[in-house]
Structure formats: C-alpha cells, structure tokens
Design a protein around this nucleic acid. Structure first.
Lengths: 217, 217
DNA sequence: TGCTTACGTGAGAAGTTATAACGACCCGCG
DNA sequence: CGCGGGTCGTTATAACTTCTCACGTAAGCA
C-alpha cells in the first residue's frame, strides 16, 4: 500500500508478498486470535509451501512484530486523521472506540495480555508516543482548570515521558486518565465481560468520557 | 487443598494428582503465559508420560477452564476475606491490586485477552457475580451522595445484573467505575505499558482510587 | 548471453495435542 | 481370602506446529 517505491522489481515483489502475508495473518488473527496464527496455514492459503514464508519473515515472532507495528501505525493514523479533521478529545475517544470495535483482536494485540518473553521492538515506542502526543494536544486544548490535582503536582516532577511538550501537568493527568479509563471500559467490553449484564457498554463508555471532559479529571 | 473429603482412596488420589497438575500449570503460566501451557511438559515434570494427563483432564482447554475457576475462586476469597476484615472500598482496591501483582498472568487469565472460541463455563459467572457483590456492598456502604448521575438514571432501568440487591443506582455506577477504572490502570501496568515512562503506577492507581472515593463518581 | 542471487520445494528434526490399544495394579465385593 | 472389574500409566500413532537444511530452478543484472 505504501513504500512500494522500491527500485528493483525484486524488492517490489518482495514487498508485495510480505503485504499479502500480513493480510492473511490479519484475517487469521481476527478469526481466531494471535495465538492461533499459523505460518503453515498462511502459506497453504497463498498456494505456497510452508518454509517459503521464512524467506520473508525470520520467525513467527517476527511476523507478529510486524503486525504489532501495523496496528500501532493504524491507530496513530486514525487518531491523527481525526485530530486533523478538527476532532476534540471526545472525537478522539469516538475514533478510538471505532478503531477498537472494528477489530478487537487488533486492539488486544497492542493493549491486551502481553506475551511473556516477547519484547516489542524499539520503534513501536515511537509510534506509541505519537499516539500519546495526538491525545495530549487535545487534552491541552481543553480549557485549563485552575484546580491542580495532587497527582498533577506529582506529575510535575515525573514528566520525563512527556519532555519537550509544553503541556501543563493537568493536561498530562487528563491524558493518563483518558487512556486508562477508556481502556478499562473498552477492554472489558471487547472481552465480553458486559454481555449478559443487560447493559449497553456504549453508555458506560460515554459516561466515562463525560467525566473525562468535566473540569476536574 | 479442599474437598479432599472423598470417600474412596481412589478419588482421594485422583484429586491429589489433579491438584498437582494445576499447581504445575500455574507455575508454567506464571513463567510463560497461558498460551505456552504444555500438557507434555507438565507430565514430564511430574515424572509421567504425556497422555497420562488425559485421565485427569479431557483436553488442554479443560485444564485451562479449571485454572480459570481457581483464579475466580482465589480472587473472590481474597476480596471476601478483606471485606470480612472490615475493609472499605479502598481496602478492597488494595486487595485487588495485591492479588493482581502477585501473579499477573493469573489476572490476565480472567480479565485479559479472551481466547477466541473458548467459552468460560457457566459456573464462573456465579463466581464473578460473587466478586461483584462483595464490591457492591462496599460501594453501597459509602455515604450516598444526593447527586444522581445521568448514567445512574439509565442504570435504574438496566440493573438486571444486580437484581435482588437493594443498592441504589449510584452504588451500581460506582461499582462499574471501580471495576473499569482500576482494571484500566492495572492491566496497563501489568502489561508493562508504564515502564520507561518514569512514572509510578501505584501513584496513578491511588489517584484513580481517590477519584472513586470522592462523592461524585 | 552468461553469472549470480534470490526464491520455492521437499525432506527432516523436535515439538505440540490427542486417540487407541495394551499391560499392570489396586480396590472392593463376594 | 481370592478373584474380577475398573482405573491407571504406558507405548505407538496420527496430525498438527515451527523451523533448518540442501537442492534445483528461475529471474534479474551486467
């Protein structure tokens, strides 16, 4: 889809095959989760034999790493696009929820149960902080309330992770609660913990978002 | 550990072997996660051959089901014990956090990424609602605030899941936010999303808990 | 037109879950 | 006390999985 501006036709073909592999992988992940991802099945689906895939991905973990990267990129793009369209914090929350509901397994791949022993590559932290920055700008754009929270004063001395951004501690606090609260509702909803409770998760999500937009986070 | 009051020595032995299997399974899960659980490895660790375990658990999913049950029971016991010791909502939150930190993979087994195609048995919902009831009682014990939230009025008509409990809608709202907000902080912390941010997750947890204890949820 | 390099295949090792058939042991009943 | 039935653990086997290696082919590059 992108970066097909390679010179040699070899690289072009290689990128194309890699893209098709990840595409099939996403189908499998959406259907049965990341733990059920089978290189063999992907190869068979593409009309190739098993070991052929190892020309394109060094291992199964390598493929998953690429998928994690794609998921991060996708979320960052989605939020950035919403932000560029003039969306405020509520709009970003809506975009986040839509992105998560569109493919729950993709959401869990990024924010779900971590695989012990598996460490995300370094460049995902860059994508993660891009996501954070987008939300942080929306947080800072909200009318700053004079009330400084106790945790806000703590953040004043522990804002290394947001170094370089001129947002006040209250905005950082709002960003953190935005993240954790919406993730709390979303992940439980996607995991199906609200089914059978006769409760509309969207209402709960909206209620939490309302609390987030109120002056005091 | 319990229910060893079986009559025949056969059943006693059987229960003992089952208990050892789950014990080894917990070790493996704590070390490498639920997806890396290997029946073969457990058997080898116990000095038995692989297929022997199928006398005790019909399948790998069957073993996981038992582990989920144990996890639910453990959390329910922990919260119940704290509640019986006079702990208020803050005390329950502390107990929950301690339980989660003691074995993150156990927490994720219950509240983490769901395994597609795997459905929890019916009796886990009973254990889950026992957990909910314990927390709900602590929520109802807090001084009721006159301010009815908009979501509280919604809950007045959608409280089937808490039918039979005389708690006001505000208490139900507080229970839901208690659950989702603390899970939001906890799951992100356990997944390691705060590492490298120079931020103490405990402080964030405490800040969210403070907001939960304030009059307006 | 040839050379080199990448690509795909097949075979195979070491793992996994799960089933089937077989032998041995133990428990309870007569 | 003895014997039978049921339970247990074993080995063998099938169908998977990831992943390595050696080989032939085919495609691009000069």
């Amino acid at each position: 889809m992108a970066e097909t501006g390679a010179k040699t036709p070899r690289e072009r073909y290689r990128a194309q095959v890699r893209a098709e592999i990840t595409e099939r992988a996403w189908e499998q992940i959406a259907a049965a989760g990341a733990s059920a991802l089978s290189l063999n099945a992907i190869a068979k689906q593409m009309g190739m034999s098993g070991p052929a895939l190892y020309r394109y991905f060094a291992s199964r973990d390598d493929l998953i790493t690429e998928l994690v990267r794609e998921a991060y990129r996708s979320l960052a793009e989605t939020l950035r696009a919403a932000s560029d369209s003039g969306a405020d914090l509520a709009g970003l929350a809506h975009a986040l929820r839509g992105w998560a509901l569109a493919d729950p397994q993709r959401y869990f791949l990024v924010y779900g149960t971590p695989i012990p022993g598996y460490h995300a590559p370094a460049d995902t932290t860059a994508l993660s902080s891009e996501i954070m920055t987008t939300v942080l700008e929306a947080c800072a754009a909200l009318a700053p309330d004079g009330a400084t929270t106790p945790f806000g004063t703590y953040l004043q001395d522990h804002r290394d992770w947001a170094a370089g951004h001129p947002a006040p501690p209250e905005a950082l606090h709002r960003l953190l609660t935005f993240w954790t609260r919406l993730h709390g509702v979303l992940s439980l909803e996607l995991a199906g913990h609200f089914t059978g409770m006769g409760l509309d998760p969207a209402r709960l999500f909206a209620a939490e978002l309302d609390g987030l937009l109120a002056p005091r986070p």
